[in-house]
Nucleic acid binder design. Structure first.
Lengths: 364, 364
DNA sequence: TTTTTTCTTGAAAGCGCTTTCATAAAATGA
DNA sequence: TCATTTTATGAAAGCGCTTTCAAGAAAAAA
């Protein structure tokens, strides 16, 4: 209702020339509600525009008396500063661009929340885009966030299109590639080696007695990190056992059902399989349910390991063993790096390789 | 690395006066990389600034020939328009503010993705903030998004602080309260009645033979919608059976474990309980696991219903029955309403009450 | 052909701020 | 006391765009 009226006012407003005085409204303007500007605060508190600006941004440069008067005026007028105008004038913005593959993944959701909370507490707004694991969408998102004057960019992983990289490079802002690391980086990379995760799980299974391994993965060709985990596992497993694991893969990501289907196919093909790695927890849970249906004893007949340490892994029966990437650490280090760069505390990119954690619960 | 250099350049830049010519750089400026502006595109393509602006925003107003030259120039210069400057000049922005309680909830994650995808395809950027179910944070988020000139605001639910509402009202932008409805709205509300969900489940249980009900909830006092579901269930259950259900509630949200703990407490107190409503699926799954541990047969001994239709409900064993809110419909209607308002197709707020779906799987 | 209408284009005035730069007032030192 | 430094404030020049407004060119009508 209220907004109805307001839209009309706004549209209306455009049809008439702007009153240059800004203050003394013409008689026919009298009922028009104009958005409160800094100038209005200045007028009400009897100071100049620049003083109000200083009172907001560098209060220590304004005498206590005026500061108080300005604060009062802002409150009475319920002034909300226009950050676009501010950023434009200052040639720098308090906005951070963040690009993740999807929000429908608790790992990314967690990272997003941690990051936005930290940036928030430092006066930065985080602009988020998601790519659905598409490089093309990533490029668009990058362009979009840059066009909104992001002061820094955070992307997921190390795999980007050439154009995206160029755009980032010419934008001349700090860029962090988080979640995944390799030996190089556009600028800064903070994460884990997903290949190592796969290798690690394979060698763990073998060391603890497994003779025949299986692998269920999803979104190969889309989710490059899941693919790296799968590849690491396959290579390491074959190397250690001489036999390649039976590998079932699905197009779609995150369908728990597929975990069960994958388990079925593996056991059909290689009934002697005694340990299966799932490239994510959702799949693993699906596998676990299928074990119950088939009366396969976990971990006695078959051991299972997931990835992600999602909330389910500590609720399933038996409790799911999984690999836990250091979400909080990634988020904190990323945020801190960005803030340091923005504050001039740091001036160089860096590559930070973090450790993952193998959480052995009840599935082996 | 690249960014290191760039930061220095930018900082450096501020220490010297801006070259007013903008084009013929002084001799000592020669190596300075300045961000490409629309003026640069204009110069390279031999047209005026205004023509470039039109070529971008209203291409039909520019002759084919010039349009092509301008496109070429933009490509060679890899021009990225500055949307802040654009929004400021146009006095309207292509940014939508979206406030949700948390991203760590697949329902909201889904809605966020749907909304951003739709807005994206219409050239709008979605600015997202989360509140952790705190009204105070919601107020801050509102102020922040408004200060970034959001052209419309989307909030979750109907419960806000007075200040938030005032701010929204004076901002004079369309506002949609989604996910939850009541008889009123700040402007527009699109969602389901969570109270009805609770009542519905209770009456379903009773109609299908339940004699003693139980309820496990979380975050009462924080998540007002979960509370509404719980209250609806309690009231309806007591009304229908004459006995109040045993009600176990937890502070923290979304811990599956608590679902199991809750089940234990309920069965301890009222061993004859034959149906339990969980205010979310995560809790329900935890309850299901606990049933397995305790050898409680579901649904023969005990029936279970969750809320949310999370991905787990179709992977658990037995498959979880649950109530499914119409995520996609909420997202689509919300996005469409906002776009219609912004395009002047609609000018009034509305209240849209949607139906939820009861998905009866294997838990009763 | 001349007149009228429609299309294209450019000049210029801002959008609401930040940040020099200059100045007046106050504090400090000699 | 006067010269010097420090502090507090305001005026004004933009930030990079959009959008009138006016004018010239082209098309249509007379």
């Amino acid at each position: 209702m209220a907004a109805l009226v307001s839209r009309e006012i706004i549209l209306d407003d455009k049809t008439k020339t702007h009153d240059p005085s800004g203050n003394a409204l013409g008689p026919d303007h009298s009922e028009r509600t104009r958005r409160v500007r800094m100038q209005d605060v200045a007028r009400l508190s009897g100071v100049s525009l620049s003083t109000v600006s200083r009172a907001i941004n560098t209060p220590e440069q304004v005498s206590g008396e005026l500061r108080r008067r300005i604060d009062d005026a802002m409150r009475t007028l319920t002034y909300v500063p226009n950050r676009m105008a501010g950023s434009l004038a200052a040639k720098k913005s308090r906005a951070i661009g963040l690009i993740i593959p999807t929000m429908r993944n608790s790992a990314f959701a967690t990272i997003v929340e941690e990051l936005t909370d930290i940036f928030d507490s430092h006066g930065y707004q985080t602009f988020i885009s998601h790519t659905d694991y598409s490089l093309e969408k990533e490029l668009k998102a990058t362009a979009s966030l840059l066009s909104w004057s992001a002061a820094a960019m955070i992307l997921t992983g190390r795999h980007h299109s050439r154009q995206t990289v160029n755009m980032l490079l010419t934008a001349e802002v700090p860029v962090v590639e988080m979640w995944d690391v390799s030996d190089q980086a556009i600028d800064t990379a903070i994460g884990i080696s997903h290949d190592d995760v796969g290798r690690y799980v394979a060698s763990y299974f073998v060391k603890s007695g497994a003779k025949r391994l299986g692998l269920v993965s999803a979104a190969i060709g889309q989710d490059i990190r899941a693919t790296q985990r799968a590849n690491g596992f396959l290579r390491s497993a074959e190397q250690l056992l001489g036999v390649p694991p039976v590998h079932v893969t699905f197009e779609e990501r995150g369908r728990a059902k597929n975990g069960g289907v994958g388990l079925g196919r593996i056991l059909d093909e290689a009934p002697d399989t005694d340990a299966i790695f799932y490239t994510n927890d959702t799949l693993a849970i699906g596998g676990l349910f299928e074990c119950q249906r088939r009366c396969v004893k976990v971990p006695d007949d078959l051991r299972i390991c997931g990835f992600g340490d999602s909330i389910l892994s500590e609720a399933s029966n038996p409790l799911l063993s999984t690999v836990r990437p250091p979400h909080e650490q990634i988020a904190h280090l990323t945020a801190q790096h960005v803030l340091d760069r923005l504050n001039g505390v740091k001036s160089e990119g860096e590559i930070i390789r973090l450790d993952f954690q193998h959480i052995i619960r009840e599935t082996g």
